[in-house]
């Protein structure tokens, strides 16, 4: 049973964007989907654009080698011209293995994919998000996408996919431990004011200044990669950048952040960008509307005080 498109997700909410992609490709009813979770989760995302939605009997967390095995089976069964995964780490890994096995080109985190005849065209952000590459190859091909890119097309999806259970293959690698990350209910992506913190902050406690500023402005605190990934001062939900969250606030206030392209690429949709940095040559000032060259430890208390006065808080 052939299907033109095979999509894969780890979570039901990712399937929504992937269903939007299937619609955008005009492949409704010609797509099948894999959800690496149990039946109950699959029922939340059984969109009718999918002929079949495969889930994993018993659910559970799958490793890339297991995802890869499942994809191999579906690839053989359906001979799709396009395989697209949600751009998660595990699926990027699994799809790259599938691509190697079948000599497929793969477009990591494509922001758009087009299928015409046997040509696949993908647009990707490269060079730390500062440039856009258009790539083309003969189908079949693989890609990953951030499902949020297709949020618009994912409006008003109807349910109706047939559900089919798959058994999880044995893992090649032995998992000897798993520690979940802490989550907070912060929604950086739709915040109207974001205060970004970077390595200019010397101690975790000092982030309280940024939190106070954010609260005054009704905003939330986000961070550069080192603050989250290296120091673990803030949770993953607050990570801004090409490997984190993309923001689109009215105002982004970046404090003690140097302005690496991988960070700034995720802030381009901000209406106004303010940079506070003590180094007047910091690249961030090129990306900012308003810059203040100052030591954040001296400037933030003053800014907070003045804002309080202005806002009558």
């Amino acid at each position: 049973m052939a299907a033109r498109v095979l999509v894969a997700a780890e979570k039901p909410e990712q399937l929504q964007g992937l269903a939007g992609l299937v619609k955008a490709l005009g492949a409704e009813g010609e797509a099948v989907a894999l959800l690496a979770a149990g039946r109950e989760e699959a029922e939340k995302a059984a969109y009718s654009v999918f002929k079949t939605l495969y889930y994993v009997e018993g659910g559970g967390r799958l490793q890339p080698c297991q995802l890869h095995e499942l994809l191999e089976g579906l690839y053989a069964e359906h001979s799709p011209v396009l395989v697209v995964g949600a751009a998660t780490k595990n699926l990027t890994d699994a799809l790259a293995r599938l691509s190697a096995r079948h000599n497929l080109p793969m477009f990591t985190e494509a922001v758009s994919i087009q299928l015409s005849g046997d040509e696949v065209t993908a647009v990707r952000q490269v060079l730390g998000g500062r440039a856009r590459a258009r790539l083309a190859a003969k189908a079949p091909a693989a890609a990953t996408v951030n499902p949020a890119v297709y949020a618009e097309q994912a409006q008003g999806l109807a349910a109706g996919a047939e559900l089919a259970g798959l058994r999880a293959p044995a893992a090649v690698l032995e998992e000897t431990g798993y520690e979940p990350k802490k989550r907070e209910a912060v929604d950086l992506e739709s915040a109207e004011v974001v205060v970004g913190v970077g390595r200019g902050f010397r101690r975790k406690e000092d982030l309280a200044m940024a939190e106070e500023l954010a609260q005054l402005l009704g905003g939330v605190v986000g961070a550069s990669r080192p603050i989250v990934a290296d120091y673990g001062w803030l949770s993953e939900d607050r990570w801004i950048g090409i490997s984190g969250k993309k923001i689109r606030p009215k105002v982004y206030i970046a404090i003690g952040i140097s302005g690496a392209p991988q960070h700034m690429a995720a802030t381009v949709d901000s209406k106004i960008i303010v940079a506070i940095n003590k180094d007047k040559n910091a690249p961030i000032f090129q990306y900012a509307d308003y810059g203040v060259v100052a030591d954040l430890y001296q400037f933030l208390p003053v800014l907070i005080k003045k804002l309080r006065e202005r806002l009558g808080k």
Partner: peptide
């Protein structure tokens, strides 16, 4: 794959210090 195009993403900011 063919790299058909590589365009810089222009962002215009006010750059006021």
């Amino acid at each position: 794959p063919r790299l058909e195009e590589l365009k810089v993403i222009q962002v215009k900011r006010k750059n006021i210090i």
